[in-house]
Amino acid sequence: MEASVATRTAPQILPGKVGVWWFLASEIMVFGGLISSYIVARLASSGWSAEAAHLSVPIASLNTLVLLTSSMTMVLAFGAVGRGDRRGVRTFLLCTILLGLTFLGIKAYEYSSELRAGFMPVTSPFWNFYYTMTGLHALHVLAGVITNLSLFVAARRGLRNAHRVELAGLYWHFVDVVWIFLFPLLYLT
């Protein structure tokens, strides 16, 4: 009876997928620890909304749109893997990479205009958190861009390792989900 239990659950799942999900679980805890700290620090003292009002909602909304769209192109690349469509895989991966770079470019522009306006990472607890949280997120975007770039190059020679597009996609969507929460936490409240 027990033997059937083991064989039923065994290797139907791709090993990489299980691995990536465990990795994402630990990542949820990293960003979770940071967001948790931000929430309690923000609720503990007043005046944070006034400082958050210096951030540009239009630019951040544009950036959110860019990242949401990149998630769609990433999942379309995964769909193309399913059809064995090598050109589609490469096209959509390239779109994702370019959108990721666009996000980083817009973020850099945002940073520079905030710094020019005198809002430094050390200015106040709000800016401590703002730069640390968005900075850590931007590093994750950068890591995703590099991963996607390596898949884009690899896909030129064929789709032998294309299941990795799904794994990279899981990570990329996770980074998107983090931004889905950072956007209202930092900009909208």
């Binding site: 799942i13 999900w21 994402l24 679980a25 630990s26 949820i28 805890m29 979770g32 609720l43």
Partner: peptide, 29 residues
């Protein structure tokens, strides 16, 4: 299984945040 891997950390983060409330949020007001 994958659901559990995704949901458990989210619950832990919620729990951590709530348990930090007495020391920070209720403390200063």
């Amino acid at each position: 299984v994958l659901w559990a891997i995704a949901v458990v950390p989210v619950l832990l983060v919620v729990g951590l945040t709530l348990l930090l409330f007495p020391d920070f949020v209720f403390h200063h007001h």
